[in-house]
Simulated scan of single mutants.
Amino acid sequence: MGSRLNPYIAFDGNARQAMEFYHDILGGKLELGTFSDFGSSESPDPEKIMHATLSTADGFTVMAWDVPERVPFNPGTNVALYLGGDDAGLRSYFEKLSVGGTVAMPLKKQIWGDEAGTLVDQFGITWMFNITQQQP
Rank of each mutant, 00 (worst) to 15 (best):
L83P: 01
L119M: 07
V120L: 11
V79W: 04
Y22S: 01
G39E: 14
M105F: 06
D87S: 12
W65F: 13
G100V: 10
I111R: 01
N14V: 04
V79T: 14
S41T: 12
G124N: 06
I111C: 02
T126N: 06
F73C: 07
T61A: 07
A57K: 15
Q134L: 14
I111M: 06
R91K: 15
N14R: 08
S41G: 13
D45F: 10
A15S: 13
R70E: 14
T132M: 11
G2E: 03
A104W: 05
F38T: 07
P7M: 06
Q135R: 15
K108V: 05
G39V: 13
D114R: 12
W112T: 10
W127H: 02
I125A: 03
H23S: 10
D87Y: 06
E20W: 04
G27L: 03
N6K: 13
T77Y: 07
Q134E: 15
S55I: 09
D66R: 09
F11C: 05
A88H: 10
D121L: 02
F94C: 02
D45I: 12
I125G: 01
G113F: 13
L26T: 00
Y93L: 11
R4D: 04
G13S: 09
V120C: 11
L107F: 14
E69Y: 13
L119A: 04
L32Y: 02
A80L: 03
E47Y: 03
Q133P: 01
N78G: 15
I125P: 00
N14Y: 04
Y82E: 13
W127L: 05
Q110S: 14
M50Y: 04
N14I: 03
V71D: 09
P44Q: 09
T53S: 12
Q110D: 08
I125Y: 00
I49A: 03
S55T: 15
G84Q: 12
V62G: 01
G85I: 07
L26W: 01
T77F: 08
K48H: 10
F38H: 13
D24Y: 00
Q133V: 08
D86A: 10
A52D: 02
R4W: 02
I25G: 05
G84S: 15
G117S: 10
P46A: 12
P136Y: 08
N14G: 03
E47P: 00
H23R: 11
D58S: 11
E20L: 10
Q17S: 14
V67T: 14
V71A: 06
A80W: 02
A10P: 03
I131M: 03
K108C: 07
I131D: 00
F129M: 08
S92N: 11
S43L: 01
P106C: 11
I125K: 03
Q135M: 15
G85F: 07
I49P: 02
R4C: 04
E42Q: 07
E31H: 08
D12F: 05
T61R: 06
V120H: 02
S92M: 06
T61V: 14
G100C: 08
A80Q: 11
H23L: 04
Q17I: 02
